[in-house]
């Protein structure tokens, strides 16, 4: 069995992504709390049911809510504030996710051409999903 090399120390990709994973995880929790609170401030208590509110917290997109059989929201909910909130959640979530998948697979594929292809694949997937999400969020 081949020996594993000890990773170098310092500002490597793995160290930066280690930090990013923790910070983005905390950011998503924080964004969810901010989203919940501001939704209540904007009148969610009387306009939404519990399920809608939970969806709105993570996917604040009126289009999406209409798509999934949830009662209509008033037009006042489709604004830039929620677009920015959702874009932030999606950005943190997908960067966290693509890096997490890369880490899981690099436990098995951790050298040579395989690793390069793996990283390339996850970079493309990450870019693709962000572009898709941007379209869903902004093109209403």
């Amino acid at each position: 069995m081949a020996s594993r090399t000890v990773p170098q120390r310092g500002f490597t990709l793995d160290y930066l992504m280690f930090l990013f994973t923790r910070i983005s995880g905390l950011s998503i929790i924080l964004l969810a709390v901010i989203g919940l609170v501001t939704a209540f401030i904007m009148g969610a208590r009387t306009q939404m049911d519990l399920g809608t509110l939970m969806r709105w917290t993570f996917f604040p997109n009126p289009n999406h809510v209409i798509n999934s059989d949830i009662p209509d929201l008033t037009a006042g909910w489709a604004n830039a504030y929620w677009n920015v909130m959702q874009m932030l959640v999606v950005f943190f979530a997908f960067t966290h996710a693509a890096n997490g998948l890369r880490m899981i697979l690099e436990d098995y594929i951790n050298r040579g051409v395989g690793q390069i292809l793996l990283r390339g694949f996850f970079f493309l997937l990450w870019a693709f999903m962000l572009i898709l999400a941007y379209n869903v969020i902004v093109m209403m």
């Binding site: 798509n67 998948l101 093109m139």
Partner: peptide, 24 residues
């Protein structure tokens, strides 16, 4: 943690693709 991570990624990824599909 790993299993739930893959679960969330599948859910959110498919969710966004589905929203894109219906919207466009």
């Amino acid at each position: 943690h790993r299993i739930t991570a893959v679960g969330i990624i599948l859910f959110v990824g498919l969710h966004i693709m589905a929203s894109f599909s219906i919207q466009q």
